[in-house]
Design a protein around this nucleic acid. Structure first.
Lengths: 248, 248
DNA sequence: CGACGTGTTGAAAGCTATCAAACTTAGTGG
DNA sequence: CCACTAAGTTTGATAGCTTTCAACACGTCG
């Protein structure tokens, strides 16, 4: 992931790992809470944060464990989920670059988090977040804004899970993913899906078979093309949007 | 919240409307954000807040409209929901006494709110919330805590909507309602349901028929008794909890 | 008393899940 | 370079849970 190979087609720039402990050069800063911190306060942040790397499949937050740490994703994508005793899983969201994780009013994490691809993150303790907020009060307003945004997204997802059909769910998912990609290359509407069909199914409240069948239906209808399982192009965005909104 | 009539069976004490503009005697204060405000700051709060009364069925927040006001429920229960163009509805939550409404990072409300029974609330503008936070910074921490708690609840509801069966959903709902009743009378486990079956269905992602059938099933199995449509008793809380957790 | 809104129960249909098998992709080693 | 393996994906057939359509019961209220 060295940024030296600038001719590579994919998202290598975004995947560049943060240099350990140098917030001022952190590629995720602009997209994260840290943008709320002034330059002259960054040194203080560096002092309390550590950079961690997680291999794909690593569970780095476990529901029910003491919520004593926060992290900020600096590269890669993670899935956040909750489990039922018999193994049924609901993915509550995907966390990309800049996502702040660990917000919890309770003493325990309310969800688990697992790295999908290689994930790097900036980590610090709950106590130190308190320090940071004390030093930079605007951080708290920023966190409130983040929490509000996540809450709105959660409510939108409740609408999806409770009232949308499989076709509408998959359409919504593709558009959401499309919008989430920061500054992709000029591939038009190429949606990249680092997660498996199982992950998508557990996010949309469906089975992998239904996700696969639904994607095939969208392809047959000409709304999308499935270039590879992990790469989908949106051909008719307007019709896909209509579907996602429940007007299809 | 006059405690003078202590012999009355139901929640009449809670339903007593707040005296207009007197925060210091507001019955909802202890349960709301306002508990974060010191006594000597309350007069300032009174100056910027107005008390509003909504009749049952009143829609007092509409999705998509400018989010320029906040309110704090002082009595009654409201339903929060999102709609699809064809009328499908997802209720994202019920707001009881003390609930703070209007948190939104966006400029528009992300949901609508409608009074279920008679609702009274304390209302103030977004600009004035800024003033309040400026005067009482601990308010912001409190709001962050509230948002985090709501976020955790939303994630739990996503698990319910995406992965639980009708039986598990209804069991979860009854237990949630049971826990939400502040200090009910000593009726054991009497759950009061001010909302209709339609509301319950739209909250659980089911139809009214399925809700009704599922309640009947729970009654047949001896887990609950349906005293009235709006009043249900939990007879076997352990088995209901097991069901709700997905172990049933 | 009758109308109406709400809730309950029944029968059939539909969408998605489950079970099963073929196919594709990526990685490995001959 | 290609065969082989394992994981993931796609497609097919069937089953099941919930929805839909319909009728009846209950309680309120004019």
């Amino acid at each position: 992931m060295a940024a030296s190979e600038s001719t590579r087609p994919h998202r290598t720039a975004l995947a560049a790992p943060a240099r350990t402990g140098t917030c001022s050069t952190c590629g995720a800063r602009a997209a994260s809470v840290c943008s709320a911190i002034e330059d002259h306060d960054l040194s203080r942040l560096e002092a309390v944060a550590e950079t961690v790397r997680m291999a794909p499949g690593t569970v780095f937050i476990t529901e029910g464990e003491p919520a004593d740490r926060f992290l900020n994703i600096t590269s890669g994508t993670a899935k956040l989920f909750k489990l039922l005793p018999d193994g049924r899983r609901q993915i509550t969201g995907f966390a990309d670059v800049g996502r702040f994780l660990g917000l919890a009013a309770a003493d325990q994490y309310g969800f688990s988090a697992e790295a999908i691809d290689a994930v790097t993150a900036c980590r610090f303790s709950r106590a130190r977040l308190g320090q940071l907020i004390h030093d930079a009060p605007q951080l708290e307003a920023r966190l409130l804004r983040i929490a509000s945004t996540e809450l709105a997204a959660a409510q939108e997802q409740m609408l999806l899970l409770g009232r949308k059909t499989a076709l509408e769910r998959v359409a919504s998912f593709l558009l959401e993913r499309d919008a989430s990609v920061p500054v992709c290359l000029g591939s038009g509407s190429g949606v990249s899906l680092p997660m498996t069909r199982t992950d998508i199914a557990d996010y949309l409240g469906l089975t992998i078979e239904t996700v696969s069948r639904t994607l095939s239906t969208l392809r047959t209808r000409g709304l999308i093309s499935i270039d590879r399982p992990t790469e989908i192009s949106i051909l008719l965005p307007d019709r896909l949007r209509a579907l996602a909104a429940g007007e299809g």
